[in-house]
Amino acid sequence: GFTKEQQRLGIPKDPRQWTETHVRDWVMWAVNEFSLKGVDFQKFCMNGAALCALGKDCFLELAPDFVGDILWEHLEILQKE
């Protein structure tokens, strides 16, 4: 899971503390893990605080249908851990 990747890359547990690099690493991991298609990494050029502050509607505009939902749900789980 993502926990191993977080440990390997030194990504903080709390997504709100992520840098732009951490956000990119997470999106890249999720794309590979969940076989997601059509993700534009440029749209995720922000730090974790900005990403978490978007709200669901704005977040879902960053990625194609269903893909955004998967990313959003995973981000929500990470914020609760």
Rank of each mutant, 00 (worst) to 15 (best):
L36K: 03
M46G: 03
A53F: 03
F41V: 15
E76H: 10
A49G: 09
G10C: 08
P15A: 05
G38A: 07
G55V: 04
K4M: 12
F66N: 15
Q79H: 08
L75G: 00
D69T: 09
A63K: 03
A53I: 04
V31E: 07
A63S: 09
N32W: 05
A53N: 14
G55A: 14
L75R: 01
F44Y: 05
T19W: 00
R8Q: 10
E76V: 09
M46Y: 07
A49I: 07
Q42A: 10
V67L: 06
A53E: 15
E20S: 12
Q42F: 03
G1R: 07
M28H: 12
W26Q: 01
D69G: 11
D14G: 01
H22I: 01
A50L: 07
L71T: 01
W72V: 01
V31S: 10
G48Q: 01
L78W: 06
Q42R: 13
G38F: 04
V27W: 03
L51C: 02
L54V: 06
W18D: 00
G38C: 05
D57K: 14
F34L: 06
L75P: 01
E61M: 06
L62R: 09
L51W: 01
F2K: 07
I70L: 10
A49L: 09
I70C: 10
F44G: 00
D57S: 13
T19K: 08
L36T: 02
H74F: 05
T3K: 14
L9N: 08
W72M: 05
I70E: 05
R24L: 11
Q42K: 10
W29L: 04
F34K: 08
W72L: 05
P12R: 02
W26F: 07
E20M: 10
K4R: 10
H22N: 14
L60Q: 15
E76Y: 15
A63M: 09
L75D: 01
H74T: 06
L75M: 08
W72I: 00
A30R: 03
I11K: 02
S35P: 03
L54E: 03
W18E: 01
L71D: 03
D40Q: 12
E73Q: 12
V23E: 00
G38E: 09
A63H: 10
G68F: 01
G48L: 00
W18A: 00
C58K: 13
V27K: 00
F2I: 05
R16Y: 11
R8M: 08
V23G: 00
Q6S: 14
D40M: 05
I77M: 13
T21F: 09
M46K: 05
E33C: 09
L51P: 02
E76A: 12
F66K: 15
L75K: 04
P64M: 00
F44I: 05
D25P: 00
R8G: 09
S35G: 14
